[in-house]
Design a protein around this nucleic acid. Structure first.
Lengths: 213, 213
DNA sequence: ATGCAATACCGTAAAAATACCTTTTTGCTT
DNA sequence: AAGCAAAAAGGTATTTTTACGGTATTGCAT
């Protein structure tokens, strides 16, 4: 391990969590907090004056600029900076998304401080930190890649309308296509998702974050 | 203000948040953290040995025993202990629910440390802390009280089934009532919610946390 | 240019969902 | 025990949804 302290930035929109984390990490004598930011935009402003930062603890869901965007931006503009994702949830989509964006590790906020410390020093030494959570999800993600269906823009728009109280005829009007075409959208989705009712479609779409309600 | 430190417990299932918060608060010289707990059950175990605690910082969504239950339990068993709710969200249902359960204040996790400190000392002095967030929600809650519909157990069960792909006839079977009765459930819900389709019911139920998907 | 695949479109019929109005049963109050 | 209100059940009709058969159009690769 280097004899210099590891320089860290914390990006999270929840002020209490962010400050608490900073306070906690400052108690480790091999870590020092350089600065905090409350979202990606804020981070972009502040990193200019702290380019010596080695590692960023990155929340995912934030207003204005989220963890995915911010991580990609860091990897484009400061490729030497490591990103460790910190999330509320053990969510496969988030894990895979952050790793794709360039994060070198992923921890849930349920983790113990000592685990966070281990993750940080491991990232600085090896460039990445893969715990059981991440390795497990990587494997299932590989398996599921072929099974994950693809949706066209029209199908996604149709799904969004499905969650309203419009009839299919009205949806066809809104989408500017014939009612029969809307039938095709529905039947294509039924077939590939093995679903048999409009209700099922809507629940599936909500569950998988395909639409907003 | 008393010359003794304010003794505080932190209840939150996110270890990093909990520890961070404890670390942060320990930096205030009028506050000392007595113990941490990761949910209501854990709190019940530990409070026995720390009955001098004056105030509990209480998360809401936790496994095993959530913030509502834990707050009610505290008010029944240790009525002198103050509860300050700490939530991720500015959510009216949560705010009103926690205040009803016996919390004396409500802060979102976006708050600044200095606001948390102010809330804590205000609670110790006055027994409650009502910021603009809470006072605003209290008022709108009063207005909405008449408008908030009430659901029977049967209706809630029916809503849950509605989110499946069962037909109404099959739902009637599952619920052990006649299909006509299921029609009544549906029509009662349509009427009181001003909804016209099964899809609308399901989306409403999901939006308002009435069912789990 | 031609053929292939994806998309859009059409007709018909059956099943499910919705609307409205009525009657029976149940549980509670007095 | 009588009366009342709520819940449950019924009849019938219309609209919407779903299923399945097929045809026309479009875009793209060869």
């Amino acid at each position: 391990m280097s004899d210099k302290k590891i320089s860290i930035a914390v990006v999270d929109d929840h002020t209490l969590f962010r400050s608490g984390l900073a306070s906690l990490l400052n108690e480790f004598d091999d870590i020092s907090i350089s600065f905090e930011a409350e979202n990606g935009i804020d981070f972009q402003d502040k990193i200019k004056f702290h380019s010596h930062v080695q590692l960023v603890l990155m929340d995912i869901n934030m207003p204005l600029m989220d963890g995915y965007e911010t991580t990609k931006w860091i990897k484009n503009n400061y490729p030497h900076i490591l990103v460790l994702a910190l999330s509320m949830f053990d969510n496969e989509k988030e894990i895979i998304g952050m790793l794709k964006a360039g994060a070198g590790g992923y921890l849930v906020k349920e983790s113990k401080p000592v685990d966070l410390h281990l993750a940080i020093v491991t990232m600085v030494e090896k460039g990445f930190y893969v715990n059981e959570l991440v390795s497990g999800r990587l494997l299932t993600s590989l398996k599921n890649d072929k099974l994950t269906p693809h949706f066209t823009e029209k199908e996604l728009a149709f799904l969004q309308f499905c969650s309203s109280e419009l009839t299919y005829k009205e949806i066809a009007d809104k989408m500017g296509v014939s009612p029969r075409t809307v039938d095709n959208y529905r039947e294509a989705l039924f077939a590939k998702l093995n679903i048999k009712s409009r209700t099922g479609l809507v629940v599936y779409a909500i569950k998988n974050g395909l639409i907003s309600i």
